[in-house]
Design a protein around this nucleic acid. Structure first.
Lengths: 248, 248
DNA sequence: TCGCGCGATTGATCTGGGTCAAAGATATGA
DNA sequence: TCATATCTTTGACCCAGATCAATCGCGCGA
């Protein structure tokens, strides 16, 4: 509704900031040319609904910049966030017409959209796209399962610490900074959004954030800027294995 | 350890009970022949660990018969089930060497395993496999996200009803029975396993099952056989949209 | 047939986080 | 500058589900 065409509509894929992380990561220049023909950019303002659950979807796409949330809502209003979309994350599901979740921009956001039909055809003919999408989907499945542990078994304090750790880590990889020592980032979520992510109330989120601050696990500059003096400490609070070692 | 070679080791793929639902669903007969060369069957007894989290994986595969659970465990012993594997479900992750979760057989179980390396090579050359796997992974991601809503926002009673509804539904599609009217099935999980799935204690599970029984939402024959006199009623108790309508 | 063991049930009590309510910060715009 | 709105914090109290503790009941092997 309030969408506006983006000034960089004909941005060159080769120069795209998410070129090597998005669904197109494995494509060669020929394949990129085909993609350019079916792509277009859309911009959204903070707070705007990008997709309504149940809506017919005529596009899929990638987040280029900004942050969005994927949420599910029950009839009585209880809502649960089921995904956090950062730059390079994929939106939409090939092979399905209806959207299953609400997608809401939490910051100003730019999406690189592909018309759904031709994108699905390309998936059949261009293995690089399906392969990359499979990889990304498997990663998301892992993230979702990690989140199930958080939701099902962690205490409120551990939940908050887990969320901060995840955001810190994703920010770190996004900005290529060193993942140890002091980290800091702007919290892209309100207390309410954090509560929806964690299966808590916003009051409990506020209390536990204050507690972590009081205990020196985090430092706040204003309400939104978070400094992590010691990542190890935060991970301990999150109840995560201290050695974040993963095989393979 | 206790594994034994299955008598039907050289079972014909064409006659396989999960032929049209598993990762090989889209393969044609030529492709099946290639798969036959890298496949082998393994049997497990109820209670046996199939995979330990952190183990090196040298195979991937499909559940042919029986039921297994995918669980995550914290150092202090808290565990959360993150997946329920029914016949035709895929096990393992191509492109990763270490297992991320424990996989445990809850009933006697038969798996159709593929040696990992050649399977990965086939994925590169045989789009039908990667395409089917993508489809299945997207379905699992949806299931995981639905589960996040259950874990994060539903009450104990709703959680139990949700679990029963999911098992009833999966059983119904598996056995091609009509999905309405009276349903019944054998609960493949102990109260403790149900608790691990739902983020509850086994006592709470027991109490809520008793409550649903007292209220006539379910009927129990023995401890494990469940009869659902009215699926609509159960779905209401689960807090699900009464019309299970999904677009596309 | 008995006794053992595991899973399930049931009861009593406790508590983490929810609920309700009231202020306190910031930002925005007239 | 003040009024309004949104987000956040903090306090008091409550309750759903956890915890601790018996007990039950059924299947199985000796």
């Amino acid at each position: 509704m309030l969408l506006k065409e983006n000034p960089v509509s004909h941005h060159d894929c080769e120069a795209c900031p998410i070129r090597h992380r998005a669904v197109c990561a494995r494509c060669d220049s020929d394949e990129l040319e085909l993609l350019e023909e079916i792509k277009y950019y859309r911009s959204f303002e903070a707070g705007q609904h990008i997709i309504w659950s149940g809506d017919r979807m005529d596009f899929v796409g990638s987040v280029v910049s900004g942050i969005a949330t994927l949420t599910q809502t029950m009839e009585d209003g209880r809502t649960q966030m089921v995904g956090l979309l950062l730059p390079s994350d994929f939106v939409g599901r090939p092979g399905r017409n209806g959207a299953a979740y609400d997608v809401v921009a939490t910051t100003d956001l730019v999406m690189c959209c592909f018309r759904k039909k031709p994108f699905e055809q390309m998936m059949e003919t261009t293995p690089h796209i399906a392969q990359r999408l499979l990889q990304m989907t498997l990663d998301e499945l892992d993230a979702a399962r990690e989140w199930m542990l958080v939701l099902g078994r962690k205490t409120a304090r551990e939940k908050i610490a887990s969320l901060l750790a995840i955001i810190a880590r994703r920010n770190a990889t996004l900005h290529m900074s060193n993942a140890s020592g002091e980290l800091s980032f702007d919290l892209p979520l309100t207390r309410e959004a954090m509560a929806d992510y964690l299966g808590l109330t916003l009051e409990t989120v506020s209390r536990q954030v204050s507690a972590l601050k009081k205990d020196g696990v985090i430092v706040l500059e204003g309400k939104r800027h978070v400094i992590i003096p010691d990542l190890e400490r935060l991970l301990e609070e999150a109840g995560d294995d201290s050695d974040g070692g993963v095989l393979g």
